[in-house]
Amino acid sequence: MRKPLILIVVVVLVVLYASLFVVQEGQRGIVLRFGKVLRDSENKPEIFSPGLHFKIPFIETVKTLDARIQTMENQADRFVTMEKKDLIVDSYIKWRISDFSRYYLATGGGDVSQAEVLLKRKFSDRLRSELGRLDVKGIVTDSRNRLMTDVREALNSGTAGDGEVETTAADNAIASAAARVERETKGAQPAVNPNSMAALGIEVVDVRIKQISLPAEVSDAIFQRMRAEREAVARRHRSQGQEEAEKLRAAADYEVTRTLAEAERTSLITRGEADAETARLFADAFSQDPAFFAFIRSLRAYENSFSSNNDIMVLSPDSDFFRFMKSPATTTPTPAGRP
């Protein structure tokens, strides 16, 4: 008796456990019955909010959708500006599911990869269109934030009515998904622009450009030109420096030459004045006694003439040069004014 009761309790617990499911915070749940989505009275998929819910065990299964903001990294791609210049743009997108039932139907069962493919194509087409309207300066400076805002609004609201005539493959794919949703819900879904991400039940929260760079071949050419310009500036500065150095060197040489010439002139003037003063002093001294002056001059002549033992002089003994070497009686000079 006890064993069947235990078995019944175990079966009831298993059935109860299989009947319960929990939707975590940041997620939404969709119940599938025999592989088909449970729908409400408007034929829209029934969405379960976070919390504890019931389902028919072994018949119904639960598929969860991420309700949080998701980040999609875009591969760096080449874009052309208004100036017909190529740029390599690296960007990312922040997006979330805004309409879970539409998102589930449009993406073929909530396939995130399919949603991101469509979003990436649409974003690339729109970003290419916006960049084609701006020049490089506007893209990398003040117009960059406005560019991101325009792209985000265009993704959310669509591009209809903005003057664009040509539709892209991404627009056609999104419109096809929107038409499929309308067919499955029989028009019960609110009307949205089939050219916007709202047709997929997606809201673009933010769009950002991480990096803008030039292609390798353009970068090399620009770097070569910048290097040539810098080298030209360096050569100009060097030549100006050499010119200033030559000017300073010439001015210094001129100043040295002028200073030396002035010093030489001053020294010659001083020496001439000293020689004149010396001559004057000698003249004043010797003019007081001419005989003594003659005697002194002869002594100096003797000193200079007989300073070397190898000197030979051929002179007459009666020469006036030896008058002071003779007897004092005959060599005494006659005083001035006496007979």
Rank of each mutant, 00 (worst) to 15 (best):
E203K: 04
I174F: 04
R28S: 05
R265E: 07
V12R: 03
A199M: 09
F58N: 11
A216F: 11
G109H: 05
I56A: 09
L131V: 13
L127H: 05
G26Y: 13
G163W: 13
H53W: 08
V112E: 02
L134P: 00
R146P: 00
P339A: 15
K55P: 03
S113K: 06
Q211N: 14
E243Y: 11
A177R: 00
E166V: 11
S298P: 02
T332Q: 15
G158R: 02
A106K: 00
A291Y: 03
M82T: 01
G161D: 07
A294W: 04
A234T: 06
P328L: 14
R121N: 01
R2C: 03
A178V: 06
A336S: 09
P57L: 15
N309T: 06
R258V: 08
A177T: 01
Y103P: 00
D135K: 08
D142M: 13
L5T: 09
R78C: 05
D318Q: 06
V22G: 05
D220E: 15
L38S: 06
F321A: 14
N195Y: 15
D111N: 12
M148H: 04
E166L: 13
A228Y: 01
M82D: 02
G241H: 09
E255D: 07
T185W: 07
M148P: 00
E246K: 15
A251Y: 10
A234N: 14
I212P: 02
S129K: 14
A261R: 15
E262W: 08
S98Y: 11
L134W: 04
